[in-house]
């Protein structure tokens, strides 16, 4: 394991790829490996990209890779797509949109299936970001599908979160209200060759003007709204400039920003702990003996499900 970690830190693609797989598969040693990677992390800037399917997130990622590479920086991409809730399988096709970077050694593209985690962010995504960070990638782009509340997840992991929208969807206030307005750092109206673009942009801007002053702390970053045509990289330079500006903003660590970070972190930590508890307990119960014994007694009415739950949990603690 130490060897694998060392190799990841030295930037070895195969080891990193393997470790991401172990994390994704819930390999028992991956938790330990991630801990060991910690001292080597923090160098990467994480850009989250989320929005409805077909909005052009992958195409946009590809254009962002162009710019990052022009600046001679390296980049990792995590493209997360939903797993089928019924079969657990998935078709992951985002690579196709980034195929022009296929042979660039400084671009590492990895597709992940959400494996039943809502919000597109799997615990593995966090781990995979860390692996890419530890490898020395300057940027990590994380693409997730989202059309509502779920987007919140990516925002907690990313330094800068882009919400990708398309013209015509602007009036879909329901989806907009449900969370994403709060978490997006930058709004991108992609497919901006469309005649409806101006309406959508104006609509979004008006929404931000209204929400700008609400909330307990004065908001000091009003999400800019940009137009792009990802297909031919129109507007990407401007977008990247804004991403840079946002990086400067976060480095100033304003009161508003810190409050938001704290809140995000707390949610994340609580989530992690409860997931870990869940895992550990599930593992202890895995053989089923204890459960089976009690199930029989519950059915015959000898004891009660509430009583059993309490006593089993006490025993495990």
């Amino acid at each position: 394991m130490q060897k694998l970690v060392d190799k990841v830190v030295s930037g070895d693609l195969r080891s990193a790829s393997r470790l991401i797989r172990m994390i994704d598969d819930g390999h028992p040693q991956s938790h330990e490996a991630l801990k060991q990677l910690f001292p080597h992390c923090g160098g990467a800037r994480v850009i989250g990209i989320t929005g409805p399917p077909g909005a052009g997130k992958s195409t946009l990622s590809s254009s962002l890779i162009d710019i990052i590479r022009q600046r001679n920086k390296s980049v990792g991409v995590l493209a997360v797509d939903p797993s089928s809730p019924i079969t657990g399988g998935a078709i992951l096709g985002d690579r196709i949109r980034m195929s022009r970077h296929a042979l660039d050694e400084d671009v590492f593209i990895r597709s992940l299936a959400s494996r039943g985690h809502f919000g597109g962010i799997t615990p593995a995504t966090r781990g995979a970001i860390r692996v890419m960070d530890a490898m020395g990638k300057d940027y990590v782009i994380v693409e997730t599908v989202g059309v509502g509340q779920d987007e919140v997840d990516i925002a907690r992991l990313a330094d800068t979160t882009l919400i990708v929208w398309v013209p015509g969807l602007g009036d879909n206030v329901q989806a907009m209200k449900a969370g994403i307005m709060e978490v997006g750092d930058v709004f991108v109206v992609n497919k901006a060759e469309h005649p409806d673009t101006a309406n959508t942009v104006n609509y979004l801007k008006s929404v931000f003007r209204q929400t700008g002053s609400s909330g307990p702390i004065q908001r000091d970053w009003i999400p800019p709204v940009l137009e792009t045509v990802a297909l031919n990289s129109r507007g990407i330079d401007e977008l990247f400039k804004v991403i840079d500006e946002h990086a400067q903003y976060t480095s100033r660590a304003s009161e508003y920003y810190l409050a938001r970070k704290r809140a995000d972190c707390e949610v994340e930590l609580r989530g992690f702990i409860s997931r870990e508890i869940n895992h550990r307990i599930s593992r202890q119960l895995a053989d089923g003996e204890k459960i089976n014994a009690q199930v029989g007694q519950i059915i015959t009415g000898e004891t009660d499900i509430y009583v059993v739950t309490d006593s089993l949990l006490q025993e495990l603690e």
């Binding site: 693609l13 195969r14 790829s17 393997r18 991401i20 797989r21 797993s83 089928s84 079969t87 657990g88 399988g89 998935a90 078709i91 992951l92 096709g93 690579r95 196709i96 195929s99 296929a102 042979l103 590492f108 593209i109 990895r110 597709s111 299936a113």
Partner: peptide
Amino acid sequence: RDHGMEVIYAGCFNTPETLFQSAIEED
């Protein structure tokens, strides 16, 4: 997919090099 596998779909226009690289990146 319907049998529970994760398929990384690389579509058309691949070369041995691009498939090889993708296979490694995707493990």
